[in-house]
Design a protein around this nucleic acid. Structure first.
Lengths: 198, 198
DNA sequence: GTCTATACACGGATAGAC
DNA sequence: GTCTATCCGTGTATAGAC
């Protein structure tokens, strides 16, 4: 077994866990399976991580970071409707381009909700989602010179609700047309909650 | 160990599995743990069920049946907005009254998506959701003497997206006010897609 | 500081005695 | 029809080699 730094090993193991979960599901990502994927020994694993839970925490953080990076740009341009539509389409492209990221994050959320050792992880994830959604809405309002007629926090939650719900349904039936149609319809609906002015 | 019929044992074990999952999460519902909860032996389990997966299939069916029963009534009365609002409030009451049912179903869906032995289970769940949503929308349209300006199938998906998304977010942060506010806002939005006439 | 080897308790599953 | 004993895989831990 090659002697690599603990830091590098951690990265390798987290990446391996993501790949295994993506291919075979959350339950398939056993410690030994992850080690095999990473080309590491079981002891190497427990030298880098105190427990499997610790790997899951790091996996969540790293996957969330990847997701935030992929969502880089808000698309502001033209009307509020067009901005919302293209922003949601941008979101959707990141989902279709890397569906595993979504399934892994869903599974991690579900797991974290019931595992005391992972307490707070799910809450942090959703706080991040809501913050991102809120910033997106504020950028669109500023860019299109409108203001929202409902509290931005509430609209942000609605945006997260919709993206989450659409993603969940798509993971089940993989109906991309239906997903995009739903996102467009919601974009139009939300646009109705903006009025000119600041 | 009491000698009970295999059929009765199955029921006991499925109920026990639901209780354990509700209390301690999906992962905690090990075969042994479920047997202890049901007061059965491990061998009794494998006499009734070929595998744990088989119990999960039955658990899904039984939980879905309970959910459909709880959602019995559509609330039609007054305007479209009022009908949608009170229908969604009715949905929400069933969630708050038995949150475990939702977490168990979410976990089962996630699990079924990746487990070949459970293939089709998640799809069936969502097909049932979509059918129920569709029927609800059609009853409201008939009762309020309006018609929908988008295909009912699309609106049904939007309804499922919203209830799913709201439920998922609530399971994480338990913010009931935010959940209800989101549902009301979506009810108002959907009402905008109805026009008088049939 | 990193890895090899080994051990233990608990998981699902099964064969076979009663 | 029910239970005992057992198998193999998984998470975790540790002693000690290099």
């Amino acid at each position: 077994m090659a002697r690599v730094s603990a830091q590098e090993r951690r990265r390798q193991l987290v990446d391996a866990a993501f790949r295994v979960m993506g291919r075979e599901g959350f339950a398939a990502a056993t410690t030994r399976r992850v080690c095999a994927e990473a080309g590491a020994s079981l002891a190497a694993f427990h030298y880098c991580f105190a427990s499997k839970q610790e790997l899951l925490v790091e996996l969540t953080a790293q996957t969330m970071a990847g997701l935030v990076a992929a969502r880089a740009g808000v698309h502001v341009g033209g009307s509020v409707t067009e901005s919302l539509r293209s922003t949601l389409r941008g979101y959707w492209e990141t989902v279709e381009q890397d569906p595993n990221r979504e399934s892994v994050l869903m599974a991690l959320t579900q797991h974290a909700l019931r595992e005391p050792a992972l307490a707070g992880i799910a809450e942090q994830q959703y706080a991040a989602y809501h913050r991102t959604a809120r910033e997106t809405l504020e950028e669109i309002a500023a860019g299109c010179e409108v203001r929202w007629t409902l509290p931005v926090a509430q609209l942000a939650r609605m945006l997260v609700v919709v993206t989450d719900g659409v993603t969940l349904a798509w993971l089940v039936d993989r109906d991309s047309d239906a997903a995009l149609a739903a996102l467009n319809a919601f974009a139009d609906q939300l646009a109705g909650l903006a009025v000119a002015g600041s």
